[in-house]
């Protein structure tokens, strides 16, 4: 339990450790690079995508190529997004234990238990966070869902691209899709997933701040620097758990 006299209310509730936490290199460079490229791309794609959906700025008679430019930016950024996504997928297989695909796919009971604990934590049924070196189990699943949605967004985006641009490589790859799912539903999916990103980012940033604060582990900084500050016991627990699996 916390040494309450040491800090006033409103501070984190993790026991003040007797020994300073370890500085652990959790997020390798490709993870951070892809994270921020994805983030920037999503911002640009959302803005331009929304404009494509509903051109809220209407040009004057003399303005040239507003829509054409926006669409161009959308598509170019789309390819940046795809590249960052592919990099991250590559790192699913090459990366360390915390960025490996195994960390995301909930195949172990402890992952499900961890998710349950996090849900309990978020719904105030549980007082304490589940401490984790990498992602907590709930976050991991959420990321997995987001990676899937990114994939769907890319497929639908490229399908739309073959409709508006065609092309020798992409057309044969993607033109089959509208025969199965009407192009309007592909558009609709592409559009709706954008809001899934919005909702995700809100929750994502909030929970990063919340957890960072509760854990006092430099979580937010970690996605910039790669390092987290982890108590020894947790680090040991973390590797023990993985070995047990």
């Amino acid at each position: 339990m916390t040494e309450l006299t040491k800090h006033g209310w409103g501070e984190a509730h993790r026991p003040e450790p007797a020994f300073p936490p370890l500085r652990v290199y959790v997020w390798e460079q490709p993870v951070r690079v892809s994270h921020w490229f994805i983030f920037l791309a999503v911002v640009v794609l959302s803005f331009t995508g929304y404009y494509i959906h509903n051109p809220f700025i209407v040009a004057k008679s003399s303005t040239p190529f507003l829509m054409a430019t926006i669409r161009f930016i959308h598509v170019v950024t789309g390819f940046v997004f795809i590249s960052a996504f592919l990099l991250r997928i590559y790192w699913f297989f090459k990366g360390n234990e915390w960025s490996n695909w195994r960390a995301f796919v909930p195949v172990h009971r402890r992952q499900w238990r961890g998710m349950g604990r996090m849900v309990a934590y978020y719904s105030f049924l549980r007082k304490d966070l589940v401490h984790q070196v990498g992602h907590n189990a709930l976050a991991a699943v959420t990321y997995l869902v987001m990676f899937t949605l990114m994939f769907v967004e890319i497929i639908t985006g490229l399908t739309l691209y073959t409709q508006v641009r065609g092309g020798w490589l992409l057309a044969p790859l993607f033109s089959w899709l509208p025969r199965v799912i009407d192009i309007q539903y592909i558009r609709l999916t592409h559009f709706c997933i954008m809001f899934a990103f919005f909702a995700f980012v809100i929750h994502h940033v909030y929970s990063a701040v919340l957890v960072s604060w509760e854990e006092r582990n430099g979580l937010i900084e970690s996605i910039f620097t790669g390092y987290k500050f982890v108590p020894r016991d947790e680090l040991a627990e973390d590797s023990a758990r993985r070995e047990a699996d």
Binding site: M1, T2, F19
Partner: peptide, 15 residues
């Protein structure tokens, strides 16, 4: 963080 809520020792043990 209500100060009275928790007894004032017991913590700060080495891992």
């Amino acid at each position: 963080t209500q100060p009275e809520a928790v007894p004032p020792q017991a913590s700060n043990q080495p891992p």
